[in-house]
């Protein structure tokens, strides 16, 4: 049985390129929209890539900026300057 991880963002303009980057980089990810928010489920792991966001915005992006629009997440986090990954280890 696969274990989903998820991450949710406020549905704001700042979140849009982040959500687009996640959907492009994580085949199998599913975005569910609710009022005011978007929740993305992904089987086993989900990665956010800095360069993928920067390609979309055309400007420098510090991955810790996601804190500004982040609502919630699940799974273990592995983060460095270039990527942010959620996963279940087992």
């Amino acid at each position: 049985m696969s274990n989903n991880v998820f991450i949710a963002f406020q549905s704001t303009d700042e979140s849009r390129p982040v959500i687009e980057a996640i959907m492009a980089d994580n085949p199998g990810a599913v975005a569910v929209e609710s009022p005011g928010m978007v929740k993305i489920d992904s089987p086993d792991r989900l990665t956010i890539r800095r360069d993928s966001i920067e390609e979309r915005t055309g400007t420098r992006f510090d991955l810790q900026q996601i804190h500004l629009n982040l609502i919630t997440l699940s799974g273990y986090i592995d983060e460095d300057d270039d990527q942010f990954t959620l996963s279940w280890r087992s």
């Binding site: 406020q10 609710s34 009022p35 005011g36 804190h67 500004l68 629009n69 982040l70 609502i71 919630t72």
Partner: peptide, 23 residues
């Protein structure tokens, strides 16, 4: 999200702002 659905912009904003700390 229910607060957003019920037109309460003030509560949804503090709620999600707090929840970003909760993560």
């Amino acid at each position: 999200s229910g607060a957003a659905y019920n037109g309460d912009m003030s509560t949804v904003t503090f709620g999600f702002s707090a929840q970003s700390d909760e993560s």
